[in-house]
């Protein structure tokens, strides 16, 4: 374990990067998921088709492929454009942080689309009817009846999506993001102790996923508090 001394700093900052990617991609993932679900549920045929294509493409393509395509694709595009104006430019890219966060959000967002759509459809129509019959407006029904019910249904799969996000962060190291796995590879080069370093990375990711799992458990308990069966 002494091999790791001197590298704790790098692992720490790498972990910070992982957390940052998580926050950014989580927000984007929710956004993509909601837009996708709304498109699929809408009456607009074009929107449905596009959302359908979105889910099919991003659920059936390897994550690594998506990241490489987004990163190198955008880099080639940007480099070409910039070189047009200034031939001395060598390489322009979208920073791996943003390309990567965007990429994994797109991927997990395609799963989230199905989750949100399923949660929306899973709400008991009887509740909605009852609310409307009581004279509650469309908007208020949506906010006070529909969303709480949806949230309860979506929470368990949503927890899994969050776990996917955090684990996919490791893939972004392949396009150069300086997070923990990246730090471990550098550490391995100098210390010659790959197992130790990668185990540390494993431990860091395990810690992150544990925190997420525990948070989801607490949220699930809260969301279901009114359903405790009285014996």
């Amino acid at each position: 374990m002494s091999a790791v001394t001197g590298w704790w700093d790098d692992f720490f900052w790498g972990s910070v990067v992982v957390a940052e990617v998580f926050v950014v991609s989580l927000i984007l993932m929710i956004l993509f998921g909601l837009i996708g679900a709304a498109a699929k549920l809408s009456k607009n045929r074009a929107a449905q088709k596009i959302a359908g294509a979105y889910t099919i493409v991003f659920r059936g393509t390897p994550e690594l492929l998506v990241l490489l395509l987004i990163y190198f694709g955008s880099a080639i595009f940007l480099t070409t454009v910039f070189q047009y104006f200034d031939p001395s430019v060598k390489f322009v890219d979208i920073p791996p942080f943003w390309a990567g966060s965007f990429g994994i959000a797109l991927i997990v967002g395609s799963y989230a689309t199905e989750t949100f759509r399923g949660a929306f459809l899973g709400v008991d129509p009887g509740q909605i009817e009852a609310a409307r019959a009581l004279g509650i407006s469309n908007l208020k029904t949506f906010i006070y009846v529909r969303i709480p019910a949806m949230w309860r249904l979506a929470l368990p799969p949503f927890g899994n999506h969050m776990l996917s996000l955090i684990k996919d962060t490791a893939l972004i190291s392949i396009i150069g993001l300086n997070e923990t796995l990246f730090a471990a590879e550098q550490a391995t080069a100098t210390t010659g102790k790959p197992f130790t370093m990668f185990i540390v990375v494993g431990g860091i990711y395990l810690a992150f996923s544990t925190v997420i799992t525990l948070t989801v458990m607490v949220l699930e308990k809260y969301a279901n508090r009114h359903l405790q069966v009285a014996r």
Partner: peptide
Amino acid sequence: YIFRGTPILVQIFIIYHGLPQF
């Protein structure tokens, strides 16, 4: 818990790059 809680890329690296350490 361990295998679902860590990225598969890390698992691959541990086995391919890491195990030869021993």
